[in-house]
Amino acid sequence: MRSTRAVAFFGVLIVLALAVGLSTRTEAPDSPVPTVENTAPQGARALYLYLREGGRAVDTQLAPLEAIASSTRTVVLAAPEGRPVTDEEVTELERFVTEGGTLVYLSPRELGQHQAALEEWLYLESGLMMPASSRGLDSTLSDVGGTTADVWLPVGPLHGLSRLRVSQDRGLRMGHDDAVPVAGLGGSVAVWRWPVGKGEVYVLAGADLLENRRLELLDNLRFWEALAARGPLLFDEYHHQLAPPPPFSRGIWVFVAQVLAVGLLYVVSRGTRFGAPRPLREERHRSALEYVRSMGWLMRRAKVEQELLPELDQSLRQRMQERLGIPLSLSDADAARLLEQDGGVPATEYLEAKADLTRTHAQPTVAPADYARVARRYAHLERALAGRETRA
């Protein structure tokens, strides 16, 4: 019965823990990757759907940029951090731009960590921090953490634009002599233009211009409309995906097989052999009465009755002090009086038991029967003191 209650109690606790865990489960954080499938604030899903529903030719690239279709007019690399752009892909991008294409590269904020080949080709370095500005916004709370960049040179897709809404972060520096800063604020550049052959490269600091949260602010959307009006626009999605882990080598599989073989050999060699069933051994435990009798026999053999007699009175007086506050220093008569007054135990019972103990202790030899008689009287007094003694 006791084990059943314990199982039920712990079962209820487990159910409550599961209920609390399910009720406090939080949603997964928004993804910061600016892909066309990401509907979070930092994604680019709104721009992709807007251009496609508007009849613009937009598509996604899910393969390496080693062969760009001849019909593509603009390629967009939106802060890719999943896979690095290889040297072969940089060569293809350079050919694409030289022949008249447009490359829009939205650089990751942390340079030197994700796209070394692209940064080496474009000669990119971190710039100054963007100053704070809320010009053009109805409220400063409409874009917390952003700033307004001015269009310094309205060329290409920036023609007719005056302000862009970007993140208040570091700008970029571009090392090419013919690269021109076309938008920024103060001494920090947000957008660079670099003419290459018949085409051009636009380098932006961060993916702010295509993010869902800033797409409708100021002239951000007009920038992408101007690019899409040139012809088919391609969003690179391949370099947002993490590269698959390398496959396990044959040596690892061989090592695993060896470990399993050695483990199986150990189990076979050291395992227990099962023989014929043996009869179930019956274990018989001793009862509490047997333990009491054994202790009594041990005490009689030790002949310590005379030494144990004072312990009976000392133990009773200790109980009287703990339960009724009767000090140990009082005389037997005063203690008996307070015992009768506060505990309801007749004083004569205690005094007679104490007198019996004193006489028995004075004997040269204390017989087990005499000790049992005195211990019984003191046991009755302790039960009466605890309120468990039944009186007629």
Rank of each mutant, 00 (worst) to 15 (best):
M1I: 10
F10T: 13
L18K: 06
T26K: 13
D30N: 11
P32S: 10
P34H: 07
P34D: 04
V36R: 02
T39D: 11
G43L: 03
A46L: 09
G55C: 05
T60Y: 00
Q61P: 04
L62A: 14
L62Q: 14
A63C: 04
P64C: 07
A67K: 09
I68Y: 00
S71W: 10
V76Q: 03
F96C: 04
V97R: 04
T98W: 02
G101C: 05
S107R: 00
Q113K: 13
H114D: 12
Q115F: 05
L118V: 11
E119F: 06
W121H: 07
P131R: 02
S133M: 01
S139R: 14
T140R: 13
G145T: 09
G146D: 07
T147F: 01
D150L: 14
L153V: 13
L158F: 06
L164Q: 02
V166P: 03
G171L: 00
G171P: 07
H176N: 04
V180P: 02
A183M: 04
V191D: 07
W192A: 03
W194E: 02
Y202K: 08
L204I: 15
L204W: 02
D208H: 09
E211N: 08
R214G: 08
L218F: 06
L221R: 13
A228N: 09
E237S: 01
H239G: 07
S249K: 10
F255Y: 11
A257Y: 09
V259S: 08
V262Q: 04
L265K: 07
G271E: 05
H285N: 12
S287K: 00
Y291C: 07
G296E: 15
L298Y: 15
M299F: 11
Q306K: 12
Q306I: 09
L309T: 03
E311C: 09
E322Y: 10
L324V: 00
P327E: 11
L328R: 11
S331G: 14
A333G: 11
D334K: 12
Q341C: 05
D342P: 02
V345C: 02
L351D: 07
L351R: 08
E352F: 09
K354Q: 15
A355L: 10
D356G: 04
T358H: 10
R359Q: 13
T365L: 15
A367H: 14
P368N: 08
R373D: 04
R373W: 04
Y378K: 06
G387F: 03
E389I: 05
T390N: 10
